[in-house]
Amino acid sequence: MSDRPSDSVDPLLSICLAGAKQSFSAGDELVCEYQIDAIDPADIQAVEVSVVWYTEGKGEEDMGVHYFERRLPSDAEDGDLRPMRRLRTRLPNSPLSYAGAILTIRWCIRLRVFMRRRGDSVMEYPFTLGAVPLRVPAVA
């Protein structure tokens, strides 16, 4: 039995891509649904959902936002931001997912929930854009 107070338990975040598709072509429409659970609706201050790319590797991390939506309790019916909501966006032609020698480019759907007095909770759902080969051709 945990001695942590019940309000310190992280909320349950879920993201579901339509058709369980995890690789997309440039220009494809990305459709997903997200939902928040195991939290009192009054405890949610704001919800942000975004489709972003970010870099990993030797260099400092760079990030680009393709889609962004921020919702406050006043934007929802009865002020409840927990029910399932659909996100729909057409993906751009670049940057394509890439795994290089010192640079990796990744795409993900990021769901961030801001809670009153408890900071935020984040969930990422990765996917790939385009089909650049995993292994770059060797230097001759």
Binding site: D10, A99, S121, V122, E124, P126, T128, L134
Partner: peptide, 9 residues
């Protein structure tokens, strides 16, 4: 190329 799902608080 895909990392595991991650949830952070």
């Amino acid at each position: 190329l895909r990392p595991q799902l991650s949830v952070t608080s």
